[in-house]
């Protein structure tokens, strides 16, 4: 599903140049659950942003479903993103002014899903995530765990092929963290490919494979278990 060839990302300010990704080669097959680990500043989040197409690479090639997408325009990237990708962030990134229902519904507005279908799909997810009773609440009225479940529901509402999760348990206690990881694992089991950045070895082991990074480069790849 994903293949990169000597992917480079350089951040430039007026006088300083920082190489965040240094010729990274990654390959992720459909159905995999890949965890990315490494110390702060090693380039994990940058890799996630580039693979999630919210940032463009400075060099190298990035193939998504066999198509080179590194050089696409912002408009085209947005189009690929909304039909294929779902995002889960450490800080949930729910929109405070929208209710739980509306937050989950949001991605479908951008993919022009008809209203009846949207309603059915959101309710299905609310039910599945066990937050139906919170549908009309605003994010600030929810616990961290509930917020992250809403964020996951929002990420999967368009049935994306790939979910990118950036430290999804980083702001949660262990019980809520566990719950979120189980949801991700279930989604993976149902066929969704997952790429997750994490600091936690425990969370990383929910995946099939762990990629370790240092100074913008992939240093090792461990297979935790073969995916089925």
């Amino acid at each position: 599903m994903i293949r990169t060839d000597k992917l480079v990302k350089i951040y430039r300010t007026d006088e300083v140049e920082t190489m965040a990704l240094n010729e990274v080669n990654v390959e992720i097959a459909e159905g995999e659950f890949v965890s990315v680990m490494g110390p702060s500043g090693c380039g994990k989040s940058t890799l996630l942003n580039v693979l999630g197409m919210i940032d463009s690479p400075s060099g190298g090639a990035y193939y998504f479903n066999g198509e080179e997408v590194g050089g696409l325009s912002e408009r085209k990237r947005a189009n690929v993103r909304k039909h294929n990708l779902g995002f889960v962030f450490q800080s949930f990134n729910l929109i405070d002014e929208l209710t739980v229902y509306e937050n989950i519904e949001l991605p479908m507005l951008y993919t022009n899903v008809p209203s009846a279908q949207r309603k059915q799909r959101v309710e299905e997810l609310l039910e599945g995530m066990n937050i139906m009773h919170r549908r009309n609440h605003f994010p600030q009225q929810l616990s961290g765990g509930q917020q992250q479940r809403v964020a996951v529901a929002r990420a999967v509402v368009n049935k994306p092929k790939l979910i990118l999760a950036d430290e999804p348990t980083g702001n949660l206690d262990s019980a809520n963290g566990d719950e979120v990881m189980k949801i991700l694992a279930d989604l993976n089991a149902a066929g969704t490919t997952i790429l997750m950045v994490t600091h936690s070895q425990y969370c990383a082991e929910f995946g099939n494979r762990i990629i370790r990074m240092l100074d913008g480069q992939v240093v090792t790849e461990n297979v935790v278990r073969q995916y089925l």
Binding site: G52, I54, E74, R75, A78, N79, R81, K82, H83, F87, N93, L94, I95, D96, E97, L106, P107, Y110, T111
Partner: peptide, 12 residues
């Protein structure tokens, strides 16, 4: 943040 989220969701 709202703008970021919307862009990630595919808003042009």
């Amino acid at each position: 943040r709202e703008v970021g989220v919307r862009k990630v969701m595919g808003a042009g």
